[in-house]
Amino acid sequence: MLEAKLDAASQLKKIVEAIRDMLGECNIECNETGLALQSLDKSHIVLVSLLLGSDGFSEYRCDRGVTLGLNINSLATVLRCANNDDILTLRSEDRANELILTFEDSKADRISEFNLRLMDIDQEYLAIPETEYAATVVMSAAVLQRTLRDLSALSEAVTIEIDKEGIRFSAEGDLGKGSTHFKPCVDMENAENSINITLSEPVSLSFNLQYFSNITKASSLSSTVTLQMTAGMPAQIEYKLPSGHVRYYFAPKIED
């Protein structure tokens, strides 16, 4: 059986908000090390990989592997019934067909319980190769989100170029073109505003901005984001969690 407790329901709410626009139904695999999810978005452009280590929970118990087949929008609907600072418990018996969610406000002596029906989901898996990326950029998650939102007014696609001078985002559409360039920098007072670039060779890739904007909904989970790119390959975009990560593998647009 699974029993996992979080001190604040907002932790799970934010994670679900970061993935719900891309995923419909997917399996969450639970074992003694934690919860994991790997699922393609409906159009197979983005793969979402979520890891929530058991250390990230205030209490965690999972004696044997449990697969939770969930509709992510149904989970989001139920989570809306929890206050952000409620204590949240996830519970599922072995071979049960439901996930029990308990929301507890210890001050008000309120306990709400919701049973979410589980589904058998035949999920497609992709083998992700271990990759040494040509460029790695760590930057503010909020700044990335803002930059992409600004450029989405111009075009459906953004080109990202990374070289030793910095990282440049550019877009071109009917009304004109625009770009934003960030130089590597260290901000001692606000470390999350630093831009760190590790590079073995310059990279330039283009991506669909609609999908990218869905990915950056994870910005509420972490102050920084790690972008990793290699020419002609999907980018890896990672938001670190206190014990785990939300990672996206994002297929670029390729010249015909």
Binding site: S43, I45, E124, Y125, A127, M233, P234, A251
Partner: peptide
């Protein structure tokens, strides 16, 4: 012009 390919064009499926 550039086109959008699915992830399976880059990663093998299983």
């Amino acid at each position: 012009d550039s086109s959008q390919k699915p992830l399976s064009a880059f990663f093998g499926g299983s």
